[in-house]
Amino acid sequence: MSGLEALYDTFTQKAELVSAVVSRVDSPEAAFRYAVDVCDRKDACQLLVSGCAEPLSPNADGLCEAKAAQKVMAAPGLPADQLPALKALCDEKGIALIEDGLLDHLAGIDIGFTVVDFGIAETGSLVLDSSSEAVRLATMISEIHIALLPMSKIFETAYDLEDALQDFMASVPNYTAFITGASRTADIERVLALGVHGPLELHILLWEDI
């Protein structure tokens, strides 16, 4: 195994350890197909329970009622030249694709799709400049977060990213996130439960860009 393959391998293992689903894609288009496919199959499997089926207080239940009837995917920050390709795939399956206006969807959206800035192999983490509010929301209120990570951007440890992170922080204002696995809690009897506030699933697509 080459040095780089070992790096990707470590990244994959560490991310999978925290229940991320990791796959490889050869192009952004392949990633779009993956995302649309996951979105399309989502309800059929009934794997996800966002909580709206539970007995809730009238207030919280009201927010569930506000959920869009149509499936929604948010892909804020996607380069303008790539958007049409994803849009076409979403249209085919009747999925609403949004880039903005996420505040109207706080009840929850189905998929948040982002292209992330870096990967940290040692911990299987994603680094995402989330200074855009839409990016922050897409990665928090979505039930599934699908992240496209160019493999050329994977580094061994967070120390290796220090310069890049300092650059982010120098461009004020800035909001940078390390994301590792799905939202989780063990606050009740130390039993692990995913998706307490943020995504219930994290899918990482390693893009073979080199």
Binding site: E133, M169, V172, P173, Y175, A177, T180, R184
Partner: peptide
């Protein structure tokens, strides 16, 4: 703390960020 390699989220905030509300 918990035997985790890292917490699920680490957030770095520099300055007041975009907030539509």
């Amino acid at each position: 703390a918990t035997g985790q390699q890292i917490t699920s989220y680490v957030t770095w905030i520099t300055g007041p960020n975009e907030c539509r509300s």
